[in-house]
Simulated assay, not measured.
Amino acid sequence: MIVQDMMNKQPVTARPETTIMETLLTLRKHRIRHLPIIVDDGSLAGIISDRDLRDASPSIFDAADHADKFERPVSEIMVRDVITAHPLDFAEDLLSIFYEHQIGCIPVLEQEKLVGVITERDMLYTLIQLTGAHQPSSHLEVKVENIAGQLADVASLIKKFKININSVLVYPSKQDDSQKILVLRIGTMNPYRIASELRQNGYDVIWPQEPEVGQ
Rank of each mutant, 00 (worst) to 15 (best):
residue 2 I to W: 02
residue 3 V to N: 06
residue 3 V to A: 10
residue 5 D to E: 14
residue 6 M to E: 04
residue 6 M to Y: 13
residue 7 M to L: 01
residue 11 P to L: 06
residue 15 R to G: 03
residue 15 R to C: 09
residue 19 T to R: 06
residue 23 T to L: 11
residue 26 T to M: 13
residue 27 L to H: 05
residue 29 K to T: 15
residue 30 H to A: 07
residue 30 H to S: 04
residue 30 H to L: 02
residue 33 R to H: 15
residue 33 R to P: 10
residue 33 R to N: 15
residue 33 R to L: 14
residue 34 H to W: 03
residue 34 H to D: 07
residue 34 H to C: 03
residue 35 L to I: 04
residue 35 L to D: 07
residue 36 P to Q: 03
residue 36 P to V: 06
residue 37 I to Q: 10
residue 38 I to L: 05
residue 40 D to Q: 11
residue 41 D to R: 11
residue 42 G to K: 01
residue 43 S to D: 01
residue 43 S to P: 01
residue 43 S to N: 12
residue 44 L to Y: 03
residue 45 A to V: 05
residue 46 G to R: 08
residue 46 G to Y: 13
residue 47 I to H: 11
residue 48 I to C: 05
residue 49 S to M: 10
residue 52 D to P: 03
residue 52 D to W: 06
residue 53 L to Q: 07
residue 54 R to C: 07
residue 55 D to Y: 12
residue 55 D to T: 09
residue 56 A to E: 04
residue 57 S to C: 11
residue 59 S to N: 13
residue 60 I to L: 14
residue 62 D to R: 09
residue 64 A to F: 15
residue 65 D to A: 15
residue 69 K to T: 02
residue 69 K to G: 02
residue 70 F to K: 01
residue 71 E to T: 02
residue 71 E to M: 13
residue 72 R to S: 04
residue 74 V to Y: 13
residue 75 S to K: 15
residue 75 S to P: 08
residue 78 M to W: 14
residue 82 V to N: 07
residue 82 V to D: 01
residue 85 A to Y: 02
residue 87 P to T: 12
residue 88 L to Q: 14
residue 88 L to W: 02
residue 90 F to A: 12
residue 90 F to E: 14
residue 93 D to L: 00
residue 95 L to I: 06
residue 95 L to Y: 09
residue 96 S to L: 09
residue 97 I to G: 00
residue 97 I to V: 14
residue 99 Y to S: 12
residue 100 E to F: 03
residue 102 Q to E: 15
residue 104 G to F: 05
residue 106 I to Y: 09
residue 109 L to P: 01
residue 109 L to H: 11
residue 109 L to E: 01
residue 111 Q to H: 09
residue 115 V to L: 04
residue 117 V to R: 07
residue 119 T to W: 04
residue 119 T to P: 12
residue 120 E to K: 09
residue 122 D to H: 12
residue 125 Y to P: 00
residue 125 Y to G: 01
residue 127 L to W: 08
residue 128 I to T: 07
residue 131 T to K: 05
residue 134 H to F: 05
residue 134 H to I: 05
residue 137 S to I: 11
residue 139 H to K: 01
residue 139 H to Q: 10
residue 139 H to S: 10
residue 143 K to V: 13
residue 143 K to C: 08
residue 145 E to K: 13
residue 145 E to A: 15
residue 146 N to W: 10
residue 146 N to S: 15
residue 149 G to Q: 03
residue 149 G to N: 11
residue 150 Q to E: 15
residue 151 L to T: 11
residue 154 V to A: 10
residue 155 A to M: 03
residue 157 L to P: 00
residue 159 K to L: 08
residue 163 I to C: 10
residue 165 I to K: 06
residue 169 L to R: 02
residue 170 V to I: 15
residue 170 V to L: 14
residue 171 Y to S: 11
residue 172 P to T: 04
residue 173 S to V: 02
residue 176 D to L: 07
residue 176 D to M: 06
residue 177 D to G: 05
residue 179 Q to I: 03
residue 180 K to R: 10
residue 180 K to S: 11
residue 180 K to L: 15
residue 183 V to N: 09
residue 184 L to C: 02
residue 185 R to H: 03
residue 189 M to T: 14
residue 191 P to G: 08
residue 194 I to S: 08
residue 195 A to S: 09
residue 196 S to I: 06
residue 196 S to E: 15
residue 196 S to V: 05
residue 199 R to L: 13
residue 201 N to V: 04
residue 201 N to I: 08
residue 203 Y to K: 10
residue 206 I to N: 01
residue 208 P to I: 12
residue 208 P to A: 01
residue 209 Q to V: 08
residue 210 E to C: 00
residue 215 Q to F: 13
